[in-house]
């Protein structure tokens, strides 16, 4: 198989390190604590997309062509998402978590790593249907500017709408997803009224601090890309941002075992990866 270029994996690892340093020094984005297997895979895809033969070729462009930064961030973070992904989780939020949130006069929700906003609108719809939305505030954050821009537009391909509509029903939606969006030939646009209690903001879980005082934090399928120490950092940040008795909802296959900060949470509904901080009373006894 002489026609195929065999690039040594060690060489890739060296190039990966150099790329990460360059991105950090040039643009201030720190990917040094991302889990290497996925990061390497994404870097190779990105190098391919940008017609660079090697990761070093990509490093050169990142250093000399600042206008590439948004592309590079998108390639490194891959903001893929769905509305009501894992519908059972959204059903559980609605049935088990919302009734407890309802006791607060104002409900703060932080959605960290909001990608193109699919989960933001999902949450807003569920809160609306539960009659809680007008005393809720959703803070939707991501490290990528471009992702936030897309999220605030709320425009998606109509191809996905059917699946999302099934997800919405399975999540216990009481209307029809079509009631919340206008559909064109190829695109759907979420009703912008749903944005009335959403604040979009840049926030990088790898370097930034506590963002708000939250009653519920949703951060699904973001920490899977982090190494153990960075996962721990993010979980500590979530713990410090939540009120006592606050809830944390993670992705369905996330594993908290390596994290020290995770020990402060107790499972609330493990099958949906929903965790909770001790309430005031429990805290006092501890």
């Amino acid at each position: 198989m002489n026609d195929i270029k065999v690039d040594a994996p060690e060489l890739d690892s060296i190039e990966l390190d150099l790329f990460v340093q360059a991105l950090q020094k040039r643009h201030g984005y720190d990917f040094s604590e991302y889990a290497p297997a996925s990061l390497k895979r994404r870097l190779r895809l990105l190098a391919d997309q940008l017609h660079c033969k090697t990761i070093t070729g990509l490093t050169e462009r990142v250093l000399h062509e600042p206008q590439l930064l948004p592309n590079v961030l998108e390639g490194l973070t891959v903001p893929t998402s769905e509305m009501f992904r894992d519908p059972a989780v959204f059903r559980t939020l609605r049935e088990k978590v919302f009734p407890l949130l309802a006791s607060y006069p104002l409900i703060n929700i932080w959605q960290a790593g909001c990608a193109h906003g699919q989960e933001v609108y999902s949450l807003a719809i569920l809160l609306e249907e539960a009659g809680l939305y007008d005393r809720s505030q959703i803070f939707a954050t991501d490290l990528s500017d471009r992702a936030l821009q897309r999220a605030s537009e709320g425009i998606y391909s109509v191809k996905d709408a059917q699946q999302w509509s099934r997800n919405y029903q399975a999540a216990g939606g009481t209307h029809s997803l079509a009631d919340y969006c206008s559909a064109g030939y190829k695109l759907i646009k979420l009703n912008q009224r749903l944005r009335r209690h959403v604040t979009f903001a840049l926030h990088n879980l790898a370097i930034d601090g506590v963002f708000c005082e939250a009653h519920l934090i949703l951060c699904r399928n973001v920490l899977i890309y982090f190494s153990d120490p960075l996962q721990d950092r993010a979980l500590a940040l979530f713990r410090d941002s939540l009120v006592r008795g606050g809830f944390l909802c993670l992705g369905l296959r996330e594993n908290l075992n390596p994290s020290h900060a995770a020990q402060d949470f107790s499972p609330f509904i493990e099958s949906a990866r929903i965790y909770r901080l001790p309430t005031q009373a429990e805290g006092a006894h501890a």
Partner: peptide, 21 residues
């Protein structure tokens, strides 16, 4: 491999998951 995620192995022989397209 769990459903819905790509399965990868890190060089330190631990599993990693990805939800990339």
């Amino acid at each position: 491999a769990p459903p819905g995620y790509h399965l990868l192995v890190e060089s330190d022989l631990h599993f990693a998951l990805s939800i990339d397209p």
